[in-house]
Design a binder for these strands. Structure first.
Lengths: 168, 168
DNA sequence: AATGAGCTTCACACATTCGTGAAACCTCTG
DNA sequence: CAGAGGTTTCACGAATGTGTGAAGCTCATT
C-alpha cells in the first residue's frame, strides 16, 4: 500500500489534499471539534490509505508526532478511529472503520445530546418547573428527548439508506 | 412583569440561576457556540421574563453592556432572539419566541450541515471520487444529505410532537 | 539484559479569543 | 434643538488554547 500512497502524491495533489483537509477541519471546528483532531480525521478520511501509523499522519499533515498523539487519543475515544496493532511491529495503526463511520458520528452527537438533557434536568430540579423559565426548560427537555429519538432512528436506518443511495 | 422578576430573585435563587446558566452555556460551547451568546441564551431561556432589555441581560449576567451587544447580535442573526422595540421607549427588547424556539435551533443545525455538504462537494470535485479516499468522501456526502432530510423532517413534526408530549 | 524505534508526556512560546472600559453614536423626550 | 438614556464600536489587558521540542517511557528484537 505504500506504493499506492507514494504514487498518488504529486506535489500538486498533496497540496490540494491538505487544502481540503484544512477547509474541512475548519467546519468541524465550528461544530466544536478541536483543531488537531479535526485535521487528523479529515486527513484520514480523504487520503487513500485505510490504515495510518502515527508517523504517517504526522508526515502527511506536516505536524509533530506530539500533536498526533493527543489528537488520535481523542478520536479513538470518540470512536472515529480504531487503534490496531499488527503482530510483530512496533507502531500502532489507526483505521477509520468505513462501515460504521457515520453511525459513530451520530452516536457521538447522541452523547452530546445526553449531556444537554442531564444539565437541563438538573436545572429544572434546582430551579423549579412551575414558572415561565421553568416551563421553557421543560419544553427544552422534551425537545432534546425528541431529537434523540429522531437521531437514534436515523442511525438504525442509515445502513439500508446507504445501500439505496449507492444503487439509486 | 418587573414585579415578578424582582420577587423571585432572592440572592440564593439568583445564584442558582447563574450556576445553571454557566453549566448550560458550557455545554452549548462544546457544540460550537461562543461563550457570551451561550450565556445570554441560557439566561433568557431560564429566567422568567419573556422580554429582556440589554441592560437587564447585562445586569442579570453581571457582565458589561458591551459584551451583551455582540452576543445578542449573533443570537438575533441565528434566529434565537428577536429584536423588538416598544413605541415611545429608547431601549431594544430581546425576546425568544417560545413557539418556534427549537425549530430555529434545528434550522441553525441544518445550515451547519449545508456548510459540510458544500466543503465535501468541493473536495470531491477537486480530489476526485474514483479512489479510496474519494469514495469515503462520496459516502460522507450522502450521509450528510440523509441527515439533513432526517432533521428537516424532525422540524416539521416537532409542533405536533410537542403537543403530544404536553398531553401524554 | 541491552538496544533502539516509536509513542507519549511535559513545559514553554506563540497565537487566538474574550470581556472590559471609555468614547462615539443614535434616538427619543422636553 | 438641546439633553439624556441606551446601545454600539474600538483598543487593550488578561486568560485560554494550541502545537512544538526535548526528555522519558514502552516494548519488540537481538
Amino acid at each position: 500500500m505504500d506504493g499506492v500512497t507514494v504514487a498518488e502524491n504529486t506535489d500538486a495533489e498533496r497540496a490540494a489534499l491538505l487544502r481540503f483537509v484544512e477547509r474541512f477541519a475548519l467546519v468541524l471546528r465550528e461544530s466544536g471539534m478541536q483543531p488537531m483532531p479535526a485535521r487528523v480525521f479529515a486527513y484520514a478520511l480523504a487520503d487513500d490509505a485505510d490504515r495510518y501509523t502515527a508517523a504517517e499522519l504526522a508526515d502527511g499533515l506536516q505536524v509533530s508526532p506530539a500533536a498526533i498523539s493527543g489528537a488520535v487519543r481523542q478520536l479513538v475515544q470518540i470512536g472515529f478511529l480504531v487503534r490496531e496493532r499488527e503482530p510483530g511491529t512496533r507502531s500502532d495503526l489507526y483505521v477509520l472503520d468505513d462501515g460504521q463511520l457515520w453511525t459513530r458520528f451520530v452516536t457521538a452527537e447522541l452523547q452530546a445530546l445526553r449531556r444537554f438533557e442531564d444539565v437541563v434536568a438538573a436545572g429544572i430540579e434546582q430551579l423549579g418547573a412551575d414558572r415561565p423559565g421553568g416551563r421553557r426548560l421543560v419544553e427544552t427537555q422534551e425537545f432534546f428527548a425528541f431529537l434523540g429519538e429522531v437521531l437514534a432512528d436515523a442511525v438504525t436506518r442509515w445502513p439500508e439508506e446507504r445501500e439505496r443511495r449507492r444503487l439509486g
